[in-house]
Nucleic acid binder design. Structure first.
Length: 516
RNA sequence: GGCGGCGUAGCCAAGUGGUAAGGCAGAGGACUGCAAAUCCUUUAUCGACGGUUCGAUUCCGUCCGCCGCCUCCA
């Protein structure tokens, strides 16, 4: 079975077949950088990251482009004499990059800024005018919706339908437009507003409209046509609809972009998140309460095309189940780290990390998830995981498969198994698939490629000395237990707990961890 | 006014024309000095009413409730 995705264009699940069998080209609408990324954006970009990771898992190289809209009225409104709109944009972009890294969103191949592509935008506007798709009114350029028969095909609406209830803001604008749905391609700037010279007498100066920038940036970076265009639901109309209207007549093809996908928004219990309601939560605020991996797991537990009920309690509830998985990984890491060269015990029958067709795979490393006494469980799990993800990225089902896998590993006694190569294979199988969901465990136990691919976790200090100290404390309690001095042992355990140190007694001795 | 979506156990959430994954919470049990961790057992007729069908939670219709979009928005 191969990957199928729900294509907004057809409103159906379709086989995902990129133009190249090796490369997938994706353009994602990024932020309008007038204000910082919030948790809603996080859901969207975490989804795109998971999608990208799954494509890579399948052997594709993903050329991903994301843009910053750094020319915008809201940006200009916020500008002051001392802090210009470009300053604001720079700050927001910097914090966006930082937030993405905190969320372990892999770097995009290209980050574009609308203001870096003005020349192309002017050129494209001119072409649209030349082809009769746009008209000029007092230095302002509008797209003529009526000139494009396909207008509305993405969002499934017609121009006529819209007119009835278009009550909102048909104000001063409409008189200059031929059709209320016509949108701005270029508008003149006044006063201190950012302005570019066009070289066209009818519309000599000004700035671009919102939609034209994405049409230009995507095509200049990815080519006249590309595989997939993303964003979130709110982009579907009018933004993406307008992009199609602009680009399709000029791309020299019948279909500018083959697939469109639109992840749903967050649902904050009926309250729309907005600045005015004061319920905008930034990524750092959120990560202070819930570590990134719990958040990623929470996102993965919900399907991307359904609204996500979002609250701290729901994240905690999901994290409680996730803890069972990390608990196992902690145990396995602790045991595996005591073995030298355990990887040598795994046969070198490896495949390339991806799941390309067998004849296309490159056996270069020891990737052998299905090795050893837990091999059958891995086979079953991988099949279920892939089946779920292939079906329009059904990550909730994928997480369910992972729970089943983990349960069976526990049941199979992996906590105390002696066959370390088998344990390693299972450990790698789990971490590899968590990685697809955006959860990374940088660890030398991983095979080298994945280990280097994981996000660098800067700033972590060496805790060896501290660990040794804690070991001695825990040993003291162990002695009390050996002496059957339960009062002392329990007193110490309570004391440790108060300090955030949890101790568990196992057949192999006490195990501790810092609660975080 | 137009377009679209949703309603599955206390909570979250997949899914299917043949009587419903997974997680949280709850209950009982095993293990443990006690815990913890883990394991075992256990909890739903899928918003309401009709229709199609041998059979619908899954298809169609009506209704009720919730929500999004049509205006900048991830």
């Amino acid at each position: 079975m191969a990957l199928r995705v729900f294509n907004t264009l057809s409103r159906k699940k379709e086989d995902f077949v990129p133009a190249s069998p090796e490369v997938v080209r994706i353009y994602t609408c990024g932020l309008t950088v007038y204000s910082r990324m919030h948790i809603g954006h996080a859901r969207t970009y975490c989804f795109w990251d998971m999608f990208r990771r799954y494509l890579e898992y399948n052997g594709y190289h993903v050329m991903s482009v994301i843009n910053y809209t750094d020319i915008d009225d809201r940006l200009m409104e916020r500008a002051t004499d001392s802090v210009g709109s470009i300053d604001i944009a720079e700050r927001v972009i910097a914090s966006f990059r930082n937030d993405c890294r905190m969320l372990r969103i892999k770097d995009y191949a290209v980050y574009t800024r609308a203001t870096d592509f003005i020349r192309g935008q002017i050129e494209m506007v001119a072409q649209l005018i030349g082809k009769g798709h746009a008209y000029v009114v007092n230095g302002e350029v509008f797209y003529d919706v009526a000139s494009f028969p396909g207008y509305g095909k993405l969002s499934g609406r017609t121009v006529e339908e819209q007119q009835v209830g278009a009550s909102g803001r048909i104000g001063e604008d409409v008189s200059r437009k031929r059709n209320p749905a016509d949108f701005t391609l270029w508008k003149p700037s006044e006063g201190g507003q950012p302005s570019w010279q066009t070289g066209h007498p009818d519309w000599p100066q000004g700035r671009p409209g919102w939609h034209i920038e994405c049409s230009v940036m995507s095509s200049e970076t990815l080519g006249a046509t590309f595989d997939l265009h993303g964003g979130a639901v709110d982009n579907m109309f009018p933004h993406h609809e307008n992009e199609i209207a602009q680009s399709e007549p000029l791309c020299g093809c019948s279909t500018w972009v083959k697939y469109w996908m639109h992840p749903e928004h967050l649902d904050l219990r009926g309250e729309k998140m907005s600045k005015s309601l004061g319920n905008v939560v930034g990524v750092p605020d959120l990560l202070e309460r819930h570590s990134y991996d719990k958040l990623r797991w929470f996102y993965a537990m919900n399907h991307y095309r359904t609204k996500l009920a979002f609250s701290g309690e729901l994240i905690d509830s999901a994290a409680e189940g996730y803890r069972k998985i990390t608990n196992l990984l902690d145990i396995l890491e602790g045991r595996l780290s005591k073995w030298e060269d355990v990887a040598e015990g795994v046969p070198a029958r490896g495949d390339y990390a991806s799941l390309r067709e067998p004849e296309m795979r490159v056996p270069r490393l020891r990737h052998y998830y299905e090795y050893g006494q837990y091999g059958e469980l891995a086979t079953k799990f991988i099949a279920k995981f892939r089946e779920a993800m292939d079906d329009d990225v059904n990550s909730p089902q994928a997480t369910a498969a992972m729970f089943e896998y983990v349960n069976e590993l526990y049941r199979g006694g992996i906590e105390s198994a002696d066959d370390m190569p088998s344990v390693l294979a299972a450990y790698r199988c789990l971490t590899r698939h968590l990685y697809v969901l955006g959860i990374e465990r940088p660890n030398e136990l991983l095979y080298p490629q994945l280990a280097t691919d994981c996000f660098p976790v800067g700033g972590e200090s060496d805790t060896a000395a501290q660990d040794a100290f804690i070991d001695r404390l825990v040993e003291a309690r162990g002695q009390a237990r050996a002496d059957k001095d339960w009062a002392k042992a329990d007193m110490l355990r309570d004391l440790f707990a108060q300090c955030g140190l949890e101790v568990e007694d196992t057949a192999e001795g006490a195990r501790w961890k810092l609660k975080g």
